[in-house]
Amino acid sequence: MSTDFQQAREALGARLRELRLSAPEGRLTGPQLALRLDWPHSKIYKLENGRQTATTEDLRAWAEGVDQPQAFDELDARLKGFESHIRSWRRQLAAGHRPVQDSWNAEIARSSLIHAWEEAVVPGMLQTADYARHIFLRYADLQNSVRDTDAAVRARMKRQEWLYQGGKKFHALVWEAALHARICPPSTLAGQLDRLAGVIGMDTVELGIIPLGAPLKIPAANGFWVLDDRLVIAEDWHAELWLDDADSITTYLRVWDTLRESAVYGADAHNVINHARQALNPR
């Protein structure tokens, strides 16, 4: 967990403790507040010591439990401030995948230059609708989230309109492993590979493929996107990280530049894609 995030969580916990100790009718002990809220005492301890992330509902209950309901807006603003950097999938997907895609679309629309690295899947900006559908279904199963698959696919496809606007540039790096990953039926993957081959040569797209046998200066770790020089979005199993500090952006761009040294482009990239395509129908 990032230091900034943990420090913000601890600061919120300290504020919660302050509200408990300054209750209008006299300071409350942890067990007393836990009894009022019908919570285990351990939850009071974890929240105040920054060992558990509060939910909006937790903060509302706390403010009312210490007889200071007016404090809720302040507490909720604090939560939104640091949670904007670490966006848990559980919370993001509570209403389905479409709202997540809408958030991405808004950020993409603000961007002119995008650097993307994907080690396991084809980047969303270059996905076919069928391929995207299977990706969303897999993640819905994993996260037990709302199945709004068709709406999510439409939103992702709409995002790709960005690629056909003048003045835009999408620098994509993909590990060859993603071209072989059977996350979808072979026929769907074949169509996706054809789509990838088709974007090579577009003036708004620079697609690099890192062959499996290429020497790597750093490990091919989790995928990430850098939007202009203002935002990094990196994905992990539990959450998306939205990072807007200069040091993080510089680090991720340096990682991207290092990975790029192992990539092939143009005709060589075509050859790697064709190899993956042929592997789907071996003779």
Rank of each mutant, 00 (worst) to 15 (best):
E107F: 09
V146L: 14
H85Q: 15
V146F: 07
W117C: 04
A94E: 11
W117F: 12
H115V: 02
A129P: 03
E83F: 08
R147D: 11
A155Y: 00
W117R: 06
V153S: 04
A140Y: 02
E83P: 07
R60I: 08
V146G: 01
E161Q: 10
D67P: 04
N105Y: 03
A77L: 14
K80F: 04
V146N: 01
D148E: 07
R78M: 13
F136C: 00
F72S: 10
W117T: 06
Q92T: 09
R98G: 07
K80H: 13
L126T: 01
W117P: 00
L142Q: 04
R87M: 11
D76S: 13
Q143M: 13
Q68M: 14
Q165P: 04
L93N: 02
N144T: 06
F136W: 02
R98P: 03
P99T: 06
M157Q: 13
W62P: 01
A109L: 10
A61V: 10
R90V: 04
K169W: 04
R98C: 09
D67Y: 05
R78L: 08
S111G: 05
A106Y: 06
Q143G: 03
A61D: 08
Q92G: 06
L75D: 01
K158A: 12
L75Y: 04
A151S: 11
Y164D: 15
Q127S: 07
E74R: 07
G167L: 08
N144H: 13
I86Q: 04
Q165W: 08
E118G: 01
A120L: 10
